[in-house]
Design a protein around this nucleic acid. Sequence first.
DNA 1: ATAATACCTATAGAAGCTGGAGGAAAAGAT
DNA 2: ATCTTTTCCTCCAGCTTCTATAGGTATTAT
Lengths: 137, 137
Amino acid sequence: MLTIGELSRATGVKIPTIRYYEQMGLMAAAERSGGNQRRYESQDRERLSFIKHARDLGFTIEAIRELLELSGHPNRPCVDADQIAVRQLEIVRDKIAKLRPLEKELERITAHCHGDQIKDCYVLQSLANHDMCESEH
Amino acid sequence: MLTIGELSRATGVKIPTIRYYEQMGLMAAAERSGGNQRRYESQDRERLSFIKHARDLGFTIEAIRELLELSGHPNRPCVDADQIAVRQLEIVRDKIAKLRPLEKELERITAHCHGDQIKDCYVLQSLANHDMCESEH
DNA sequence: ATAATACCTATAGAAGCTGGAGGAAAAGAT
DNA sequence: ATCTTTTCCTCCAGCTTCTATAGGTATTAT
C-alpha cells in the first residue's frame, strides 16, 4: 500500500494532479485509511504511469479516458486504440507544421534588427506590417 | 470611425477578444457613442493589427504589452524589443524540439499496431510501459 | 414605426493543472 | 506517552487566452 506521496514520487505525478485525476474519473476513488487518507496498490501505480506517459505524449484527458476504457476489454479489436494514437500523431504533426513558419518568421525578424533606435526597429515594424512577412501564418 | 464589428472584420480579431484586450490594457478604453457603443479610429486598427500579428506569432499578452510600451519611445535603443523577439524565437524552437520526439514515438507506436485484439495492442502496451520508448520525453 | 441587426455588461466555462488556507493524521524522536 | 515534523485532508481560487451565453439597449434600414 502506497500513500499519495509515495505514489507521486513513484510516478512523477504531483499530488494535487493525482487528486485531480481522481476527480476527473481517470483514477478510481482510492481506498482510504482509518484517518481518511488515500491508499494505493501497485495496479494504481501502473494505471497512473500509463496516464502520465500518455499525457507526456500530449494525449488529452478525454483521449486517455477512452484508451483506459478500451484497455478494459481485452478481446475487442484494437483499431479504436490505434485510431486515437493516429489522431494524436496528426495533432502533433499539425502543431509542428504550424510552428515552423513562426520560427522562420521570427528568425528573419530578429536577424534584421541592428540595435538602432525604436523608431527604426525592424522587430516592431514587422509586427506592425504584415506585408513584410514572407509566409502565411 | 469604426464600430467594434467593423474593427473586428478589418483585423480578424473577434469582438469579445477586442473587449478582452481592452480589459487587459492592451487597447486603450475606446471612445463611446451617445448610446455607449465603442467607436474606433484608424490608429486603433493599426494597434490591434500589431497585437494580432504578435499573437499569431505566439507572443504572450505580457510580451506584447512590453513591445507596445517600447514602441511608444521612438528614441530609445531597440535592444529590448529585439530581446523579446529572440526570447520568443527560443520559445518556438523549444516547442518544436519537444514535439519532434513525440512525433517519432507516436509514429513508432502506431506503425506497430496490427489491428489485433486489445490485449496484444502495441499502442496500449507502449503507453503502459515506458521502457519500450526509444527516446526521452 | 417597426424589424433586423449590432451592440452593451456581467458572468461562466474551457484544459489541465497548481497553490494556498486551515486543520487532521501519521511517523519519528525523546 | 508526548512532542515535533511531515504528510495528508478538503475546499476554493488562480493561471492563460479567449469564447459563449443571457438579458437588455442602440442603431440602421425599410
